[in-house]
Design a protein around this nucleic acid. Structure first.
Lengths: 295, 295
DNA sequence: TAAGTTATGTCTAGATTTTGTGCAACCATT
DNA sequence: AATGGTTGCACAAAATCTAGACATAACTTA
């Protein structure tokens, strides 16, 4: 495909399905496309012209008036064609790779509404654990690594996190607490700002009927301890993805030593580093976390 | 997407489900939408017009009378559609002080589910702006000051922020974008971690039909600039509540100098500090922010 | 409750506009 | 001269425009 002007009007008529007459009229009356000319005055259309004409033809066929849309830019026309054809079938995607790919594409172009829509649909038609393991997790990892490699920018990472956060929040609320009275506190230690792992396990806990107190990222040990004891929670879940090993170990040790004996601690995340010989149970696999929660 | 007028009545009829007759009557009798005209007098509707008509159609379908709602501003219609409640006649006599008090009590005891419930109910029965100004804002301020005074702990502040964040996210999603094509980016400059102000204005923008790209807290100037230019947004909204004056001024100046001229900047928040003689418009009052958004 | 009023969608009718196509005369290349 | 293209004018079908008449339902008032 070049931007060479190479098609004459009869050829374009065949390619687009419009008559030569119509082509000339659309040019003269509405300036829909203005082809170059040969020295003798013959019209010469480019590939882009043909594409545009096809678009216009399609839109006119669905009811738009040529006079109203002839002057609009190509991007606008494409958008109109895209939004017009969709209402029939909102395809529920259950094929994880494709979902991931489409969400990544949306994030790359900062089209967060689109990303949200795809994810929301997928979330409702998949097993929650599967969804977390097969979609949310991998996407976060991919955005993270591509960001480090410089292929994506910080905005993409932020936007993606925002979408996921909102999504997980909404999903969490779909599972109302049952009266089992099992309470869990979910948090992230001091200086750890990555909350998405925490959100994922919080959602798992909610799914299993726990009453979840989600505290968000970056909390000093004493605050976490206070929350656990004040609410008489039986379980504390921590997520660490970005701390230095010694920092992780220090914080977790501080939390553990101050917690009442009967409280269990479940920790996970890429950078987790727990002191040995402690009651802190380290668990990276979401499925196993889930098993622990359903016990 | 542009705000160009490009649809003729027949197409609009197809898109909205209303008859051409009805469209003309709604215009003549109630001024529900007043489309531009071609030179010859033909009606030309914009995407925003279509969005508004869809809203009106939906509301009429649920029992509202067209005469009563035709003149209401878009934001009002969106709120009504979102809550499917009464036509704004009863000025919502929810008693804000009591709501605040009950939420505060719930937060104090870390009963976040209770807080969530109270807030969600109040949010749906109140005018969004009023709700933000009368409930969300004051509660955040109160939690902040009581924390500084040592009456509350960091966990309370975190838990409360988490609740509000989730709430605002959900509320934002109640107002789907119409095709008006007005895009706004909402963010918080580097080192500013308080995102709730940003979330509040993001929600206001969504209510007014803007397509909102919410980037969350703590973004360097160049990232914000990239997002704005990449999405061709017309407006950037910034919130600063916790930076030092010189830091605020530096970041904002950096952003402003790198942004294309046609992008407006609206900034607010306790610690905002904008360079003088700039196009940065500082606005602390939510009602005035809203006015700017509906222009 | 009956009668009158208002609100709202639909319909008609005749004038215009929009838009695709037909025809005529002419030009360029082969 | 055959082919494919150009321009301008004419024309007809479809879509709109305006103004007003009507039908129905909902609401008011006596």
């Amino acid at each position: 495909m070049t931007d060479e002007a190479k098609y004459r009007v009869g050829m374009v008529a065949k390619m687009t399905g419009l008559s030569t007459h119509t082509l000339r009229m659309w040019e003269k009356r509405y300036g829909a496309v203005v082809p170059k000319r040969t020295e003798a005055g013959g019209r010469l259309y480019t590939d882009a012209d043909v594409g545009r004409l096809r678009l216009l033809h399609k839109l006119v066929g669905t009811g738009h008036s040529i006079g109203g849309i002839a002057k609009l830019p190509d991007a606008e026309l494409r958008h109109m064609a895209a939004t017009l054809s969709t209402p029939s079938k909102p395809p529920t995607l259950t094929h994880f790779p494709e979902i991931r790919q489409r969400v990544m594409a949306a994030v790359e172009h900062l089209r967060i509404e689109e990303a949200e829509q795809i994810l929301a649909r997928a979330a409702l038609s998949a097993e929650p654990t599967e969804f977390l393991k097969g979609v949310v997790g991998p996407i976060l990892v991919e955005v993270g690594t591509r960001w480090e490699r410089g292929e994506l920018r910080m905005v993409h990472e932020h936007a993606c996190s925002t979408v996921m956060r909102g999504l997980l929040f909404s999903l969490m609320r779909l599972y109302p607490t049952n009266g089992s009275g099992r309470r869990v506190v979910v948090a992230t230690p001091a200086n750890e700002n990555h909350e998405l792992g925490a959100l994922m396990v919080a959602m798992l806990a909610a799914m299993h009927g726990w009453s979840v107190l989600y505290l968000g990222p970056n909390l000093p040990a004493e605050e976490i301890v206070y929350a656990v004891t004040d609410t008489e929670a039986q379980l504390l879940m921590l997520s660490v993805t970005n701390l230095k090993p010694e920092e992780s170990a220090r914080e977790i040790a501080a939390i553990e030593s101050a917690l009442p004996d009967q409280v269990s601690i479940l920790a996970g995340g890429r950078a987790i580093n727990a002191p040995p010989n402690s009651r802190v149970q380290v668990q990276q696999d979401l499925a196993l976390v889930e098993a622990a929660l359903s016990r």
